[in-house]
Design a protein around this nucleic acid. Structure first.
Lengths: 107, 107
DNA sequence: AATATGTGCAATTCAAAAGTTGCATATATA
DNA sequence: TATATATGCAACTTTTGAATTGCACATATT
């Protein structure tokens, strides 16, 4: 069962993990300590994140450092693009309003 | 129970609804026809989307047209910003590679 | 070689969310 | 006024996901 990036991000703990890993790669045990959470619980979240390739493992002896994968997160950005025009229209209309206000001040 | 925007977007049906509504406002009944899904199921998705303010209702007689709310979707874009530097770093490195290739062509 | 540490996997329990059915309410239309 | 249409709400069932517990395996350390 291949995981979905949208569902992976839906969980607050997984979002926190991503935020951490975007700064530096960490092992499951260290993550568990940071979140005051059982290692196994974290491990399951890691599995979900790894299945949709938002993070990647890098073995170092008996430890496994998980790295954030920006490439995959960019897919999200691409999905969001379809809505970007919607809020840009809104802001353009705001620009018009501001412009009108400015003109009336100058008058 | 206030709904979370991340969880709202996790469901594929709700994402499809958002895509539709970003183009034009629709009533629940019309949406249900489009998705070949029970009206009540769609209605529940609408409730979730409305609770986190991703869509807004506009009454017209006995019908209710739901509109997409770009302002709320932009919150997503803001969250994504923390990761943007990660993939930009990656692309900058790509730029370096391209620049090196270009130079070697010129040589 | 014996023990400790880091990790993943499987089974189970518990909670939340998706979907269905039935009903209530409001607004049209005949 | 009687009927049809559009919608929301509540109860219930089924599915899905989060967390815990116990175990197995690999790599260190003594």
């Amino acid at each position: 069962m291949k995981q979905d990036i949208f569902q992976a991000i839906a969980d607050p703990t997984r979002r926190a993990i991503l935020t951490l890993l975007a700064i530096q790669a960490l092992t499951p045990t260290i993550m568990a300590e940071r979140f005051d959470m059982s290692r196994q619980a974290v491990s399951k979240h890691i599995k979900v994140l790894q299945e949709c390739e938002l993070i990647k493992p890098k073995h170092a002896g008996r430890e496994i450092y998980y790295h954030f994968n920006p490439k995959k997160m960019k897919e999200f950005d691409n999905w969001l693009a379809q809505f970007r025009k919607n809020w840009e229209i809104q802001f353009n209309q705001l620009d018009k309003v501001l412009l009108t206000m400015k003109k009336s001040r100058l008058r």
